[in-house]
Design a protein around this nucleic acid. Structure first.
Lengths: 317, 317
DNA sequence: ATGAAAGCGCTAACAA
DNA sequence: TTGTTAGCGCTTTCAT
């Protein structure tokens, strides 16, 4: 017990004793076994986090901010990737729950029924992010992807453009991408405009290459298109590059908008009009909420809406 | 014991009994406690992985490939970020070791003395990646950053360019970035060229914004520069964008090269000449090596050199 | 195919 | 300030 105390900062041990213990530990190369510690104290200090892909700057920002907010409390993130696949998410969450995390943060508000049940039965706080589901499992910190794109459509329409296309993925794997497309269609119909210029650019998540190919295709089949709204800045940048290769001037001949406020869109020439969903803010708020809950016990389910900001740049006129 | 067996696929339990157990488990919302399981069996099925930053597509690719290679064996990655800081790495590795991972994969071959000691004393395989240290701790899968950049200098010089600059970070936080700058200087001196056009663009990791600012500065102070080699494709893209804003033609007036083969460099116009260090290959090979070791027990220390490929594109003439 | 006993390495609770 | 006891929830081992 004295050793156990000596190794835990802030517990009452004679300083000489502690010094002797620490030096012995150093000499022996002793490393505390937190597996045993977790079992006994029923505290793992894990927070399970799932994101669709590790290779996405937006989700990386959320996880980075979450990590910073949790580090001070000694909480370690246990990260998993669903590969935009709800079945994979189910497998992953089952695995993660076995590790007895003290909280769970998932991306998105759509899950398999079994995933939902597992999360509902989990005795720890659950936070859904990057979405605003109608019937949350527990806590939510997110925004409406559909509504955000509607704001973008409104902006483009306000500039007098009417022949507007949407570039996105071709399946429903990426539910947030799907919501964005739905928002596009809804807004176009609200304006009484043709909402059928939908380019399906391949299996989500689509990136720069797919955006470039989609733009090439669009300019071939619908050369009178005046504006393109893309499911992300990455595909928007690809679309912009395709225009540059063809000599189509942006925004003079065609406007391009993206989503996500990725760095590339702020640097490229012309810079890309986008929507900033504040990924770091999502992570920060999730960390704050978890710290509150872990301090004060469970609260009522929290629903925090992030308001995505329209960022108008050079690629739209 | 029967319950324990029933929940573990491939063990001998009467199928009726197993069915009853599984349905009871489902009904109760029972979740196996892998903390207890790990303590008893002394197998956590964790692999600890450290990378400098979560928000970097190269490291993300390595981790993604590693994850895929380990998933089949039920190994879960325990990921930590050092923020390009060796002190932070030390804290992180100490934390991770307490979780009793079955292997450790770190980025880079330079560590604090204490980190080195901890890793040497760890009784599990250690793999250093993304580097080729002279005195590895245990296993290594990586490449020489300095040598890779030398190849790039050779290429640029072979095109008849002599006034060549390097854009990188301004401190030694990013040791791979530092190695790249060293490689630049060594190669320039080998060619008998002036190696003093070194632009320090801010604290590493530098990204697109810093690359753009550095290029602006360079074109102001050394307008006769013929080529710029950047520490990464991200800063190279920033540099390219700065040129486009100023109307400096690339590659006619100035050549630009990067490092890392990020997607942006393959899509932008002009596309960016780069070096591809095959980040996924590093992750795949690390996974293979770990699987071998976990099957067959410890081997001699392995040293696998990845040969980075020069990818010549439009931004250099 | 199932069960009984023991113990993995810690720490909560209580005692001195 | 230090020590004793017990037990966290599993799985290894051996027995039936």
């Amino acid at each position: 017990m004295t050793v156990s105390r000596a190794l835990k900062p802030g517990s009452l041990v004679n300083e000489q004793t502690r010094a002797r213990i620490l030096s012995a530990a150093e000499e022996l190369g002793y490393v505390l076994d937190s597996t045993a510690s977790s079992l006994r104290s029923q505290k793992t200090d894990f927070v399970a986090v799932t994101i669709p892909s590790i290779n996405n700057a937006n989700f990386a920002d959320t996880v980075g901010a979450l990590n910073e907010g949790l580090k001070a409390r000694g909480l370690q993130i246990l990260l998993g990737y669903t590969n935009y696949d709800m079945q994979e998410e189910e497998r992953l969450i089952e695995q993660l729950l076995r590790r007895k995390p003290q909280a769970i943060v998932v991306t998105g508000g759509k899950h398999t029924p079994r995933t939902r049940r597992m999360l509902e039965n989990a005795t720890v706080p659950v936070i859904e992010t990057w979405d605003l589901p109608d019937t949350p499992i527990n806590h939510v910190i997110g925004f409406s992807n559909a509504q955000a794109v509607q704001a973008m459509v409104d902006h483009v329409v306000s500039k007098g453009l009417t022949r507007i296309a949407f570039i996105g993925g071709d399946t429903d794997r990426d539910t947030r991408g799907l919501d964005r497309r739905r928002g596009f269609v809804a807004a176009m119909e609200r304006h009484g405009l043709d909402a059928t210029r939908l380019v399906a650019a391949g299996p989500p998540p689509i990136s720069m290459r797919e955006g470039a190919d989609a733009m090439d295709h669009l300019l071939d089949t619908d050369p009178d298109t005046e504006a393109v709204i893309c499911v992300s800045d990455l595909s928007a940048f690809g679309a912009l590059s395709a225009c540059q290769r063809r000599g189509t001037r942006v925004p003079e001949e065609i406007s391009i908008a993206g989503f996500g406020n990725y760095e590339v869109g702020s640097i490229c020439v012309p810079s890309i009009t986008t929507i900033d969903p504040s990924p770091r803010k999502i992570g920060q708020q999730a960390a704050e909420l978890l710290c509150e809950i872990l301090d004060q016990g469970a609260l009522f389910p929290v629903r925090r809406e992030i308001i995505p900001q329209l960022v108008i740049r050079e690629s739209t006129r």
